[in-house]
Design a protein around this nucleic acid. Structure first.
Lengths: 140, 140
DNA sequence: TGGTAAATTGATTTTCGATTTCAGAAAGGG
DNA sequence: CCCTTTCTGAAATCGAAAATCAATTTACCA
């Protein structure tokens, strides 16, 4: 799996150590659905690995984000969520405010317009966030 | 000022009371620049009205948001900011990650594309957020 | 206009997620 | 295998948001 390799490379480059916990957390993270909070992942892990503490999960997710294999997300609820990132393709989110469902979408045309807007204002964009909030088909 | 009227109407409709503090907070809020945090507004008010407590500012800003004359905003720093809303025109934000400057922009075409995306996924959009993060002209 | 019920206020406390601390444990280079 | 550095887990701390509560203020109406 290329994300595991990318993470390992990052760790080496930074002089950080490979530990059993980090291996386990990475595996569980990659296996799980996206948009998990630290709490979510911690609870999942606890089933098979009760020894792993919350702080370690928290720090390891931060590392994932730093290494580029994950991204932090903030949707309205006060929780930080992590999403695994594969390659370069960017996507945005549709969030159902009733059931909490999160859908991903891509729209290159919107991206292009964003760049145009930024240019018009003299900005150099490093990242962006586009979240659409509403009701999904089921919840309407 | 129409926003004051709109707020008064909201208060009446909800059976809430008009108080001296709420008047003062509303005046200061409308007079101030946008994107203020609760803390910001509280500190401003304290100069002339030391008696007004933080909790009252906090609750009153919530009321503004509920009434529709203000909107809550969350940009990367862990603070809730409030922006006064006039009429219907919507806008999005460019945020400089170096100096914290916040620029507003409007782009109807992006809005249109968002609606299209939502429709394609069976969503009914209630709100959205588009934040572009990067470096402003000065900070590059 | 005075009485009263309901809402509001300000200080404080509580909550909650995020982050830090620290002593003991593990990694990994020599 | 040793030694230095990094890591771990439990617990403490932090900061903003939210809730609490007794005292106060408001709105309404007799």
């Amino acid at each position: 799996m290329e994300r595991k390799k990318a993470f390992k490379e990052f760790m080496t480059r930074k002089g950080l150590k490979s530990t059993q916990q980090r291996e386990i957390i990475l595996d569980e993270f990659l296996r799980s659905s996206s948009h998990l909070s630290t709490e979510d992942l911690y609870l999942r892990l606890r089933k098979r690995h009760p020894g792993i503490g919350y702080a370690t999960v928290y720090r390891t997710l931060k590392l994932f984000a730093e290494s580029g294999i994950a991204e932090e997300r903030h949707f309205g609820d006060g929780q930080t969520r992590y999403e695994s990132v594969s390659g370069q393709e960017h996507h945005d989110h549709l969030i159902c405010t009733a059931c909490g469902a999160i859908l991903e979408f891509e729209n290159p045309e919107i991206e292009r317009l964003q760049d145009k807007v930024a240019k018009e204002h003299g900005f150099r964009i490093k990242s962006h966030r586009l979240d659409l909030y509403g009701l999904c088909g089921k919840c309407q």
